[in-house]
Computed example of a mutant assay.
Amino acid sequence: MSSAKKQTQVRLEPGVLAAGKDAAAARGLDFNRYIERLIAEDTSGARAAGMAAAQRLIDTHGAFLDDLEAGMDAQYATATDTSPRGAAA
């Protein structure tokens, strides 16, 4: 039984390989499937469409998202402030 898939070899820096394997695992994919999916998304236009949609979201709601993030950051900083200045307040 032969496979229609072809094998290739890619040389990656250790950090890039580790990041790729971590990203694959986070998505529940094996590394080969992850790479195949990245190439398919990049060459089919799906990645560009997703990036365009993300940019539209940022353009439309960016200020709201910035305010929300700042509020969450401030809340977290207050809850975790263990500095002498924070403890005295």
Rank of each mutant, 00 (worst) to 15 (best):
M1D: 02
S2A: 04
A4K: 07
A4M: 04
K5G: 05
K6W: 15
T8D: 12
T8P: 00
T8M: 13
T8I: 15
Q9G: 14
V10W: 00
P14S: 08
G15N: 12
V16C: 13
L17Q: 13
K21C: 12
A23I: 02
A24V: 11
A26G: 00
R27P: 03
G28Q: 00
L29S: 01
L29M: 05
D30N: 06
D30F: 00
D30R: 01
F31M: 11
N32M: 07
N32C: 12
N32G: 11
N32D: 09
R33C: 11
Y34V: 07
I35N: 03
E36V: 06
R37M: 06
R37F: 01
L38C: 10
I39W: 05
I39Q: 08
A40E: 04
E41W: 02
E41C: 03
T43A: 08
T43D: 08
T43V: 06
S44L: 08
A46W: 02
A49P: 00
A49C: 01
A49V: 00
A49W: 01
A52R: 06
A53H: 07
A53G: 06
R56N: 00
L57E: 09
D59K: 01
T60E: 14
A63P: 05
A63R: 14
F64D: 14
D67P: 05
D67W: 03
E69D: 13
E69W: 01
G71Y: 02
A74L: 09
A74M: 08
Q75G: 12
A77E: 12
T78I: 03
D81M: 04
T82W: 09
S83V: 03
P84F: 14
G86A: 11
A89M: 14
